[in-house]
């Protein structure tokens, strides 16, 4: 009986999403069922992991940004020792190095992973499809200004663009500049203007 119960659970797909049918996707589905049948992990563990991963969103990154804007000591620590400072804030980073990159009047940072698609999942959630796309990964290191222009980022010539190629061991997040006109704003109001793309670097100016 319990076997049957497990089996049904293992087959459950979200109703509004189609079941996978491609050969490659079925390899994944089959592997999952084999690992579960082999006792390597349970449906409950899977559901807990999915909930944990779905729980991460750009709000996490925005929390760090707002604290950095409003607390100079924190900002210094965040820039000097990203991983440790982020863990102190309670975000469950993988055991990786982490560097927060500060945008300034003359520096704009943008992140990519040319090798695969490493992304600061704990702070930004699931990466957007374009971040994982061949076109973004190929071109942002070669012609970052052109790619940024596609995203609506208008950079003057005196702004230096720094492209940071993430790895499995080292992840990045961009610290966007606090916009003028946001003096005296509450943390909640500041949080609301920090976008996912500004944390990746495909947006520069935040909308006040």
């Amino acid at each position: 009986m319990s076997d049957h119960h497990e089996h049904d659970h293992a087959r459950t797909f979200q109703p509004d999403h189609p079941e996978p049918t491609s050969d490659a996707a079925l390899v994944g589905v089959a592997l999952r069922e084999l690992l579960m049948e082999g006792g390597h992990y349970t449906v409950e563990e899977e559901q807990a992991m999915i909930a944990r991963m779905q729980g991460a969103s750009p709000e996490n990154g925005a929390t760090l940004v707002v604290r950095a804007w409003t607390d100079v000591d924190f900002k210094e620590r965040l820039l000097a020792n990203g991983a440790e400072t982020i863990k102190e804030m309670g975000f469950d980073l993988l055991p990786t190095e982490f560097t927060v990159l500060e945008n300034t009047q003359t520096i704009h940072n943008v992140i990519v992973c040319t090798l695969c698609s490493c992304y600061p999942r704990a702070l930004l959630g699931m990466s957007p499809a374009w971040y994982k796309s061949k076109n973004y990964r190929s071109r942002v290191v070669r012609e970052p200004r052109a790619v940024l222009e596609e995203f609506g980022v208008d950079l003057s010539d005196d702004v230096e663009v720094r492209v940071h190629d993430s790895t499995a061991e080292l992840r990045y997040m961009v610290l966007p500049q606090r916009p003028s006109g946001s003096d005296g704003w509450s943390d909640e109001k500041l949080m609301a203007i920090v976008t996912r793309n500004s944390l990746i670097g495909t947006q520069r100016d935040l909308n006040v």
């Binding site: 994944g28 699931m126 499809a129 070669r142």
Partner: peptide, 18 residues
């Protein structure tokens, strides 16, 4: 990295449950 390629398709795509 560094290969030539076309414009970046910025459409968002939901992650399917599978």
């Amino acid at each position: 990295g560094g290969f030539e390629a076309g414009p970046v398709n910025q459409n968002e795509k939901d992650t399917a449950y599978w």
